[in-house]
């Protein structure tokens, strides 16, 4: 029998992605041994918290969590404050980069999302550092259309002489829905995951922020195109494969005529 965690991930790849959070909770109650692995490896839509010091919203994930508290990227403090001590925060050098990265991705967010929320978290590793870049935006418009985008970019940076090796895993969770009298209910939801590795030149810590910025920007461009293709191209094509608007006898006749024309030309 397959490893239970592999089976759980396979199941989550099949069940309605809109219910991923609920389904993870079910899986944990069915097999508590999977708890840690599931929370680590399954991406769910990002929760939002307000930083009480700066009054700015920030995003929550497993990487800025300590128990039931989350570290704000704006104040470097946990919300709500931790009962026992200060919690794990990055080293001074890494925190400096984290502040710069948050400023940079705030600009990026405004340029591409024109709204929404961004948060970047970094942590120290033995041979470099790692981090995640989170972006979230929701829209709702008439008639009764809603949409949400969550991107979760997790990366590792390994320092080498004058370069760094970056490994990036990106997930975008995109959910769209409409509900109207004319069309009825429509829900188009899901997530896609992509990975990339790259070596890039590093002069100082500012280069790291720029390098990660470029990688995330390229990745999001690629993934946005992919999502466009799958959500609006592939889904529509499959519906067309299930049912044909023009009569099939007509379509088959047209194909036949086309074949005859082609063979006529080649003769």
């Amino acid at each position: 029998m397959a490893d239970p965690i592999d089976s759980a991930l396979d199941l989550l790849r099949r069940l309605n992605p809109k219910d991923v959070k609920k389904n993870v909770d079910h899986l944990i109650s069915l097999n508590p041994d999977l708890t840690e692995d599931l929370l680590e490896s399954v991406d769910t839509p990002l929760a939002v918290k307000k930083c009480s010091k700066t009054k700015r919203d920030f995003l929550c994930c497993d990487y800025n969590r300590d128990g039931d508290s989350w570290r704000s990227p704006w104040s470097n403090e946990f919300e709500p404050p931790l009962d026992d001590g200060e919690g794990v925060t990055p080293s001074d050098r890494t925190r400096k980069m984290e502040v710069k990265a948050n400023e940079a991705f705030d600009v990026y967010r405004e340029l591409y999302f024109e709204g929404g929320i961004s948060s970047v978290y970094l942590w120290d590793m033995d041979d470099g550092f790692a981090g995640c870049v989170l972006l979230k935006k929701s829209v709702s418009s008439s008639p009764k259309t809603t949409g949400s985008w969550d991107s979760i970019h997790v990366f590792e940076a390994q320092d080498r002489a004058r370069t760094a090796h970056y490994k990036l895993t990106s997930t975008v969770i995109l959910s769209l829905g409409t509900d109207s009298e004319a069309l009825g209910g429509l829900d188009l939801s899901g997530n896609m995951v992509r990975q990339v590795e790259q070596d890039m030149a590093v002069e100082d810590d500012t280069s790291h922020v720029a390098n990660i910025g470029k990688m995330v920007e390229d990745m999001e461009l690629k993934m946005r195109n992919l999502l466009q293709e799958v959500y609006f191209g592939k889904a529509k094509d499959v519906v067309g494969d299930l049912r044909s608007i023009p009569p099939l006898s007509q379509t088959n006749r047209d194909r036949q005529t086309q074949r005859e024309m082609i063979s006529g030309i080649s003769r």
Partner: peptide, 21 residues
């Protein structure tokens, strides 16, 4: 109608969420 909905979601909500550039 469904085919039209794919078009309007792509041109509407999807673009409002994130610009291509």
């Amino acid at each position: 109608d469904l085919n039209k909905a794919f078009g309007s979601l792509s041109e509407g909500a999807f673009k409002q969420l994130r610009r291509q550039l």
